[in-house]
């Protein structure tokens, strides 16, 4: 018993090695692929040990870390609204553009504190072995007579209110202008009310596939990467409508107060180079934020399922909008949901 206590008490002293970099992503298959294609090669080439951890977007941990000045995470992958907010709040360091080459990134995938990592998106998909007919676009998704069955959308305002407005005929470039007004929000909720009984909601990215496979939903809005992955195992089973794409960009950021910030910037520079990213795209349907993935015809042809190839027909989730209105609309959504 005493030995155990001593062991436990000495564990904090087994602190991190001198210059080991801690990289934190969202985990899952993508991170496993990134480890193989990006982190380990860079670590071998530079001799700097890299440890990668995962989190589920719990920003509170980063806020708490910076507040107590005991920063144990160095580089973090963050979603766009969290990046913007975190940068304003000073929990992420300003990106060192003298170390990271800003010109290689696709336009609008870099910001003050973030360097674009991957684009991700969600689109409507269904299981072709269960359903032959499918709606074309969101407007038809509301037609429960021609296309019976439950629809699975994301729990929350983000990605759901946009879908409602798109289904109601609002043009893509006006969605956020409409949603910014009270009337626009009411319009979105009224639209959702129309098929309320046929809606199911998911919270984690794993659920849409689960719902479709388990018979709980016929059509689902799900992350494109997951669908492409599933189709790799069972070719052609899942059909996806790229015209219903909603997408955004995740970025790499360095946590403020990290003792390994310098290595962190070098790391970001290293893993956003074209060659490692091409290796990554070969083993996982990722859509890196490197401009070649949007502009180079050969690379686009090699990665037909990358979000970047379809971004033009999709709706970009407006970062500013969600930073400003996020909390308010999430509350409104929850109030609507429980009515």
């Amino acid at each position: 018993m005493r030995l155990l206590l001593v062991l436990l008490l000495t564990l904090p002293c087994l602190a991190r090695a001198q210059s080991e970099l801690t990289v934190v992503g969202f985990g899952g298959g993508f991170q496993d692929a990134a480890r193989r294609a990006l982190f380990e090669p860079w670590s071998r080439a530079t001799g700097i040990p890299v440890r990668d951890d995962s989190y589920n977007g719990e920003m509170a941990r980063i806020y708490a870390m910076t507040r107590t000045r005991d920063v144990v995470w160095d580089v973090v992958m963050v979603e766009a609204p969290e990046l913007a907010r975190g940068c304003e709040d000073g929990i992420f360091q300003r990106m060192d553009w003298s170390v990271v080459d800003r010109t290689k990134f696709a336009p609008s995938t870099t910001s003050e504190c973030g360097a674009g990592a991957v684009s991700w998106g969600a689109a409507l998909f269904w299981d072709t072995t269960r359903t032959a007919r499918a709606p074309k676009g969101f407007a038809e998704l509301w037609d429960t007579e021609r296309f019976p069955g439950k629809r699975a959308l994301r729990w929350g305002a983000k990605m759901t209110l946009e879908v409602a407005l798109l289904a109601d005929g609002v043009p893509r470039d006006q969605v956020y202008a409409v949603l910014a007004t009270r009337e626009g929000q009411d319009r979105a909720f009224r639209k959702l009310d129309a098929i309320r009984d046929d809606l199911v909601f998911w919270r984690s990215g794993a659920q849409p596939m689960q719902l479709v496979n388990g018979g709980e939903a016929t059509y689902a809005l799900g992350y494109t990467g997951r669908v492409v992955q599933a189709n790799a195992q069972a070719p052609g089973r899942y059909a996806m409508d790229w015209g219903t794409l909603l997408w955004s960009v995740d970025s790499w950021a360095v946590v403020a107060g990290s003792p390994h910030a310098a290595e962190g910037f070098r790391f970001i520079q290293g893993i956003t180079e074209l060659e490692p990213l091409k290796r990554l795209a070969a083993i996982w349907p990722a859509s890196p934020a490197h401009r070649a993935f949007a502009e180079d015809a050969a690379i686009r042809a090699a990665n037909p399922d990358a979000v970047a190839s379809h971004a033009a027909q999709g709706l970009f989730l407006d970062t500013r909008f969600w930073v400003e209105k996020g909390e308010d609309l999430e509350k409104r959504f929850a109030a609507w949901a429980q009515r």
């Binding site: 904090p12 969202f26 985990g27 951890d53 997951r226």
Partner: peptide
């Protein structure tokens, strides 16, 4: 366990929860 984690030293629930945003393996 999410807050008070030693880097790289997950507990079992934390390990199960890891990546759940991406997949329910």
């Amino acid at each position: 366990a999410i807050f008070v984690t030693a880097p790289g030293a997950f507990t079992l629930p934390r390990q199960m929860y890891a990546g759940i945003r991406e997949q329910l393996s």
